[in-house]
């Protein structure tokens, strides 16, 4: 079977409905994440929000943690902060361990 190479694009920015679809979540849940400071959209009102870069990654992680482990929004916010702190420490550790 011949496989055609597909055109693909990088997901750069998502609107609120796009992010909901992307995470298979509803708007209330996404808005709650914004209120907890987990996601930082560009734009003043939810109608023109744009989610970029780390917000997309964090939203997806948050959704997985919520779905798989039943963690609520406050808990997800804390876990994500701690995970980022841990990853930064692991990077520094890796840097000091080399050679």
């Amino acid at each position: 079977m011949k496989v055609a190479t597909l055109q693909s694009d990088i997901v750069e920015a998502l609107s609120l409905p796009d992010l909901c679809r992307f995470c298979q979540a509803d708007e209330t849940w996404v808005i709650e994440l914004v209120e907890h400071g987990v996601l930082e959209p560009i734009g003043s009102k939810s109608g023109n929000w744009k989610f970029v870069g780390t917000s997309i990654v964090r939203a997806k992680k948050a959704r997985r943690l919520n779905r798989d482990l039943g963690i609520n929004t406050a808990g997800v916010a804390l876990v994500l902060d701690l995970l980022e702190e841990r990853d930064a420490l692991l990077r520094r550790l890796a840097q000091n361990e080399i050679h």
Partner: peptide, 22 residues
Amino acid sequence: RTIAVRVPKGIAEGQHIRLAGK
């Protein structure tokens, strides 16, 4: 299914590639 994916230049870790309609 086997799909051939074009990885766009300059993509960073954690970013997503979208293949519309796939």
